[in-house]
Amino acid sequence: MSAPDPVIRVEGVSRWFGSVVAVSDVSFEIGPGITGLLGPNGAGKTTLLRMMTGLAGVSDGSVTMFGQPVRDNPALYRRVGVMSEHETVYTFMRGRDFVRMMAKIRRVPNVDDAVERAIAQVDLVEAAEKRMGTYSRGMRQRMRLAATIVHDPEVLILDEPLNGADPRQRVHFQNLLRRLAAEGRTIIISSHILEEVEQLAETVLLIINGKLAASGGFRAIRAALDQRPYHVRVLASDPRRLAGEVVQLPSVDAVNVDPDGGLVVLSNNVRDLQVELPRLAQKASIGLRRVEPLDDSLESVFGYLVER
């Protein structure tokens, strides 16, 4: 049985502005579910998203969605919802009118129902009659999301959608995205709030300096970074003596002793360390009180890749 065709295929895409290379030879495929696009500011995420939506052309390579080119292909936008990072709203418009206009220009069959459903999904029914110029940033983002999903798109591309949202709105937003993804949609979300992407995304694309640094599931990415020192914090009954023993292990590159007495072990092979450390402590009669990974979060992986 062959694998299902990807919804979005990015093949050898590059984009340069004069002598500045914003995106360099990036290739990946995206299928249904939530995919997180991560990278530091200036990494090329937004340029890449703009090329994936057809808003910007590629200098080289190709981007297809449902097997069709995304550039100069208006018919494709019936199936796609895009929310850019900029607060692209008409401040003189009422929220409901904005969503209605977006529904009409996307030729939604039953406009009124679709508009009310979309506004209800972002929990902004009470504010829908107010002008968008009076909205908070979070409210504008949510109303923009309503306009993005009003035509029930199969693909959602959201660039920094959580900007300006308060914690309650973030939770609501995350739940909404999970629900939309569970219905079979393809969702690409870019964010600098790494914990949220980690919580939301099944697949992660890491973009650094315009290149795809890593892709796959969070743990797969983590496993792929086997050359990277892995930080483990160890609390022990005799930390200084343990440090002297641990540093001799082949799986350990360095050991630091914190002022509070904890050890921070930099391991090049955490699986070996997990086996060797308890044996070593037992042999040296040193009690291990706590062993915890310091960098098993997306942020730490991301930080490492950025620094590399």
């Binding site: 808003l55 208006p74 709203v89």
Partner: peptide
């Protein structure tokens, strides 16, 4: 105002 994308990201012929 960067609102042009609202219009161009629609299925309307240009």
């Amino acid at each position: 105002d960067r609102t042009l994308a609202n219009l161009t990201l629609s299925p309307l012929p240009r």
